[in-house]
Design a protein around this nucleic acid. Structure first.
Length: 722
DNA sequence: GCTATCTAATTTTTT
DNA sequence: ATTAGATAGC
């Protein structure tokens, strides 16, 4: 008996030992699913499977990294298996076969910001007078949806006929033009990495043969979050050997708004009728109370595969529920609590989760006041910072001169007299001649175009020199060469005098990361590094600081902490107000809380605030409806919460809170009101204005106003004429 | 063409 | 409050 299998329960063992054919594993939270995948990889390798015949895909770099290192710890050969994210696997295959699609294998990868800019270029030409920001926003949503659904431009027409409500006016044309523009730029957005690979697999028999032959054993983690495109890719890859194991938990599906279809896992056996099915329902992570609360909560969902998570662990501490007067006090309470428990839970053991990023500010302030170290995950992305984007854009343009989005970004950075007018002239010339922007620059320089000719020549020569210089130097020098050639520090100092040091530090960090990368991958070229930074976003600086972890509930998936706080359990925040009216969105909000709760190994606190300032207005939200769905037996109310919650009568929670006094009884948030001067509006919240209570009303025609409730009539029109 | 000022928009966002 | 992006004025 292999020692790998020690300490596995019989169900886990069955999952690991599964050899041929499709298998779907429903793995509840904390049931050891990463362990199963890694152990299975090790087991396969120990039993004659070649490491490079194994493919394991996940969604996040973090998860992939974890999986890779754990598998390697079991068998060192696992480092030759392909254990990575969907996007980076696809990017790798696309580089291999780019030419089959008419792409150069130095193609750029566009992040959301780049792709918005590309879309803007397309729309600007199509609707010169249109409201660009609105159009871009509308089309972005449509494009990301249609790409995750695996629908190609040539199929979009039919799709628009079948589902007209899903397609904005002109959407089909924009989709086609956008894809053409990206092809012209030799660039792919995140969606294209998947979609273009799917296109290859569908149309190109040679590629399909090679890739489906290559991987004997395929495993996919977090399968509930796959979209249709990903499902179809996996289907093609696994078609030959049919050794496909998918692992997931429909209760943890929290990305349906991004095209994930949990039916991929729930109905897996419709595509694979011979699929075996294993359910892992024993939780090894959390205490009894935490598991109990989470299961009871998620059981309120109507759409889910039936299952019950259980544990043999002791009940442990009760789940703490606390209510505070406002968001600041809530944060203060959490910080104080962390401080008082510091002998039991080290700062690294603790996480605070919240629904929206904007909630992090008050938490940060409170933690700072208590001198508690913390790390915020995923707020200001390192690679989205202006100075980093500038550097990366230059390097991209050097690797791929067709990359027009990078071209447009850097042509006047640092400022060199090539503003909107000049760019317009270059673009128009390019359009006229049917050539790329860089070629247009070359010809305009050659033609000795008046005014902009010399400036363009400077830019062109600079770029050419940079290209030579960087290509002939070791990779780790690239950023340094750029900085000097551009005199970029001077530019930063002039343009951002007070943020200068920060920005230079960031660039230093980029350069350090680059050196590190070059050291680890001695063979790597600029293109490899560019791909890595496009797909991996980690801020090495913040990652090493440690302390209490702050993140959104979405980011928390897949992680675990001994001690967890979830802040802002209020109707309007969790569930979020945009998701409260639609039943299936509401269920997703519930799953979000479920995910948060099940991250806690030992102790959990749920907090909410009566009032909360968001942006500039004060909102009054009732406690989350989800709090009522957690049975009282698992909960301990803090003193403060007790008087307000009345735990013995949970159904009165709302009533007591919202209708606390007569004024709010008739004018609660969300109520339609009518004002004699401003006309119809909706109450968004309340504000205490020097002791006087005012309603924050969003008027149909006059925007937001703070109004004394006595001036408002209930309903959408007044009985009297205004 | 560049800079300063104004305005609108802020759910979540693995890649 | 904050930020990015568009517009108006130098």
């Amino acid at each position: 008996m292999s020692e790998l299998l020690l300490n596995l329960n019989s169900v886990q063992k069955a999952a690991v030992l599964h050899r041929e054919g499709p298998l779907v594993i429903f793995a509840g939270a904390g049931s050891g699913k990463t362990r199963i995948i890694t152990t299975r990889i090790a087991y396969l390798i120990n039993h004659g499977v070649l490491p490079w015949e194994i493919l394991a895909v996940t969604f996040t770099n973090k998860a992939a990294e974890e999986m890779r290192s754990r598998a390697e710890a079991l068998v060192p050969e696992a480092k030759r298996s392909l254990i990575t994210t969907f996007h980076s696997a696809c990017a790798r295959w696309l580089r291999e076969f780019a030419s089959e699609l008419g792409f150069d294998n130095h193609f750029s990868i566009y992040d959301d910001q780049d792709s918005s800019r590309a879309l803007k270029q397309v729309l600007k030409e199509l609707h010169p007078k249109g409201d660009l920001p609105t159009l871009v926003a509308e089309m972005r949503g449509f494009l990301s949806y249609i790409k995750t659904a695996g629908i190609f431009p040539h199929e979009a027409e039919q799709f628009a006929l079948d589902y007209p409500q899903m397609v904005p006016t002109g959407g089909v044309t924009v989709y086609r033009l956008y894809q053409e523009y990206l092809a012209q730029c030799n660039a792919m957005d995140f969606g294209d990495l998947l979609l273009n690979l799917l296109l290859l697999l569908r149309q190109n028999q040679r590629v399909r043969e090679i890739l489906s032959q290559r991987y004997q054993y395929i495993m996919v983690d977090e399968f509930q979050d796959t979209n249709r495109t990903q499902f179809e890719i996996i289907h093609h890859l696994a078609n030959r050997h049919r050794n496909l194991v998918v692992v997931g938990d429909d209760d943890q599906s929290i990305y349906s708004w991004r095209g994930a279809t949990p039916s991929n896992i729930i109905d897996f056996d419709q595509t694979y009728p011979d699929a075996k099915r294993i359910a892992l329902e024993q939780n090894y992570r959390c205490t009894g109370n935490i598991v109990g609360a989470a299961s009871k909560l998620v059981a309120y969902n109507t759409k889910r595969a039936p299952k019950t998570l259980f544990t043999e662990a002791a009940a442990g501490d009760a789940i703490e529920v606390h209510l505070e007067v406002d968001g600041e006090m809530e944060a203060y309470w959490i910080a104080e609590r962390i401080q008082s428990e510091r002998r039991t839970f080290g700062f690294d053991d603790i996480a605070i989760f919240y629904r929206t990023n904007s909630q992090s500010r008050s938490l940060e302030e409170a933690l700072r006041r208590f001198k508690i170290p913390y790390t915020i995950y995923g707020s200001l992305e390192f690679y989205e910072r202006l100075e980093i984007k500038d550097m990366v854009a230059y390097l991209r343009l050097i690797a791929n001169e067709s990359d027009e989005i990078s071209f447009l970004r850097v042509i006047n950075v640092p400022t060199r007299g090539l503003g909107d007018k000049a760019i317009e002239q270059v673009q128009q010339f390019a359009r006229q001649q049917g050539i790329g922007l860089m070629e247009a620059v070359r010809r305009l320089v050659q033609a000795g175009t008046p005014k902009i000719g010399p400036k363009l020549k400077y830019f062109h020569d600079l770029l050419a020199a940079l290209k030579d210089d960087i290509r002939s130097s070791p990779l780790q020098e690239a950023v340094k060469i750029l900085l000097e050639a551009l005199e970029y520090p001077d530019y930063l100092k002039k343009k951002f005098p007070d943020q200068y040091t920060d920005k230079i530090d960031n660039i230093q960090e980029l350069a350090a990361g680059m050196s590190e990368y070059a050291k680890r991958n001695p063979e790597a070229h600029l293109e490899d590094w560019l791909q890595a930074v496009s797909l991996v976003r980690e801020d090495t600086e913040t990652a090493s600081i440690g302390g209490v972890s702050l993140m959104t509930l979405h980011m928390a998936k897949g992680l675990e902490f001994r001690r967890v706080y979830i802040a802002g359990l209020e109707d309007g925040l969790l569930p979020h107000k945009n998701s409260m009216d639609d039943p299936s969105s509401l269920e997703e909000e519930r799953r979000l809380l479920y995910v948060g709760i099940t991250r806690a190994k030992e102790k959990l606190s749920l907090t909410c605030a009566r009032r909360r300032r968001t942006y500039n207005t004060e909102m009054v939200n009732p406690p989350s409806r989800f709090l009522r769905e957690v049975p009282q037996e698992f909960i301990e109310f803090t003193l403060k919460a007790k008087e307000l919650f009345e735990p013995q009568a949970p159904s009165s929670l709302h009533a007591r809170y919202v209708y606390e006094d007569d004024e709010e009884a008739t004018l609660e948030a969300g109520a339609k009101v009518y004002h004699p001067t401003y006309g119809p509006g909706i109450i968004e919240g309340f504000d205490d204005h020097f002791g006087q209570r005012k309603a924050i009303v969003r008027f149909r025609d006059f925007g937001y106003r703070k109004i004394r409730p006595s001036q408002l009539h209930a309903g959408s029109s007044s009985g009297r004429s205004p």
